[in-house]
Amino acid sequence: MELILDEKNGIVTITVEEERLDAHNSGELKTRMTSLFEDEKSNIIVNLKAVRFVDSSGLGALVSGFKNASARNGNLKLCGLQPQVKSMFELTRLHRVFEIFTDSEEAFSSF
């Protein structure tokens, strides 16, 4: 799975460079986020601009990251959701759980 990590002012942006975030690759995202939490980095932006497709495993990995970040007094925010990906968040009502921004600059400014 191709993930690009960029850290600025203690906020880590993970850009998912995959068309799909699903049961095949979501475990890798979860593992990468776990490493960040172990390094005491708990303010994270996940940029999903390249992701066209997400399933329940992909959503579950993001929920896991959100809960871990929150438990460490941090936050995990999302940006760059394509319309069909956004529809999956709405279907599962997870759009009420996450703070969702148009792009990474907007998400970064919200911290």
Binding site: S56, L59, L91
Partner: peptide, 18 residues
């Protein structure tokens, strides 16, 4: 429960919904 914040358990709900 769609308002739950569990990591898993959405697959069947999604299939039933669609």
């Amino acid at each position: 429960n769609p308002d739950s914040c569990h990591e898993s358990g959405r697959g069947i709900y999604i299939m039933r919904s669609l």
